[in-house]
Amino acid sequence: MSPEFIQFILSGITLGATYTLAALGFSMIFNASGVINFAQGEFIMIGGMCASVLVSAGIPLPLACIVGVMAAGLIGYLMERLAVGQCRDAEVATLILVTIGVSMIVRGLTEIFFGKANHGLPHFSSDKPIEIAGATILPQSLWVLAVSALIVVGLKLFFSRTQLGKGMLAASYDRLAAQLVGIDVRRVLTLSFILSALIGAFGGILVTPISTVAYDTGIMLGLKGFVAATLGGLGSGSGAVFGGLLLGLVEALTAGYVSSAYKDAVPFVMVFIVMVLRPQGLLGAKPTDRI
């Protein structure tokens, strides 16, 4: 294998790891409510933004990260309480519109309070690239990958082993039935927004040392995360990882071997084909509607 090829793969993994983290948040909320949360990108941005603003104010990195994640969690909570939850009887399409509205508000407020400049964060470990067979990857990308893996495993355990997690799944399958067996559906929904905000913020913080963050960072990351989640299968944790990495690799290999001009077009064409041939996504479970 040529070093060039390995570099394309490593580049794809770096891109894909960030898409994965964004995709996980989408899956989380979709699982609990059937809603596609288009403010997911903003959760990512808020995490990175808060952490970098705090670090430049002299607060140590670990503390800044915790505060950043908490801030996003709070926004997730408020978003569900004040916006999405208020119209919980509305159709899913309406709720999705609500999330788009919230994303605009969050972006606008960030613009006002933190300004429009790009912000950075120091690398967590070293910023010296690691060499693999003539190609290089940043240690920070490994951080992103490792944390994504941890989150996936954590979510898997959460949904299969804990009562709360099972309750969340139940509420997404059938809200009424879940309510009848004593699951507090409202609490489940709130929790799903908090959790996905936490995951998103984590991702944002991890990516910021590589790519910097600005108030509008969330738009593109959110969009790519959504594509990744759809590719892999919405609602599936392993699907999010698969979709994210696949998307990153396809982009990098297209840029490397075809033309970088088509790099952004290929994933969108791909999602279109997948939607036609396999609407549940590559790893998604086939929906079974009983009549």
Partner: peptide, 20 residues
């Protein structure tokens, strides 16, 4: 003649091509 998306978190694929 390479392009990239301004919000990409990694452009090493394009750069590796140029480097080589």
């Amino acid at each position: 003649d390479e392009t990239f998306n301004v919000k990409d978190t990694d452009v090493t694929a394009q750069l590796a091509k140029i480097k080589n």
